Simulated scan of single mutants.
Amino acid sequence: MRKRTYRARVWLDDQEYRAYRSAVKQSGLTQETFLRQLITGYVPRPAPPMDYHRMIRELNSIGNNLNQIAAVANSNGYINIEEYRKAVAYLRRVLSEIQTAIALPERR
């Protein structure tokens, strides 16, 4: 059974249709998802550059390394836990800021 039971149709002139198709293409979303975001009060952003995904993977790798360092240090008993927690919190904050700035839709 379909989750959405209503279908909406709209007529556009040439200029409106070109602008709509261009915005959808830039966002990397489907036409339906693009319109749903607009309806719910979000302005879809252009799709992030290819480097974005590489940067996120790299930052996640840094986070994994921090976790491994912490595991080893905890077993050996010589780590400054407070400094480690600050580093992890900073990493998470940076990841969140990157995702917010590049990928998440913007509230109107």
Score class of each variant (00 low, 15 high):
residue 16 E to P: 03
residue 26 Q to D: 14
residue 91 L to I: 01
residue 105 P to G: 06
residue 62 I to F: 03
residue 12 L to F: 13
residue 47 A to D: 01
residue 77 G to D: 09
residue 41 G to F: 09
residue 26 Q to A: 15
residue 25 K to V: 08
residue 81 I to V: 12
residue 85 R to S: 00
residue 7 R to I: 12
residue 45 R to Y: 06
residue 108 R to N: 15
residue 48 P to W: 04
residue 107 R to H: 11
residue 102 I to Y: 11
residue 62 I to H: 06
residue 89 A to H: 04
residue 86 K to C: 00
residue 1 M to D: 07
residue 82 E to L: 04
residue 40 T to R: 12
residue 20 Y to A: 10
residue 77 G to R: 14
residue 18 R to D: 15
residue 51 D to I: 04
residue 21 R to A: 12
residue 97 E to Y: 01
residue 66 L to S: 07
residue 97 E to C: 02
residue 107 R to T: 12
residue 80 N to I: 02
residue 77 G to E: 10
residue 94 V to C: 00
residue 91 L to W: 03
residue 38 L to P: 07
residue 105 P to H: 05
residue 105 P to Y: 05
residue 46 P to M: 02
residue 33 T to Y: 09
residue 41 G to K: 07
residue 71 A to W: 12
residue 7 R to F: 10
residue 108 R to S: 15
residue 80 N to W: 00
residue 21 R to M: 13
residue 60 N to G: 04
residue 87 A to F: 00
residue 79 I to V: 07
residue 107 R to F: 09
residue 27 S to R: 10
residue 66 L to G: 02
residue 104 L to R: 06
residue 7 R to C: 05
residue 45 R to K: 14
residue 37 Q to E: 13
residue 73 A to E: 03
residue 94 V to N: 00
residue 82 E to Y: 05
residue 14 D to S: 13
residue 80 N to T: 00
residue 50 M to P: 05
residue 12 L to K: 01
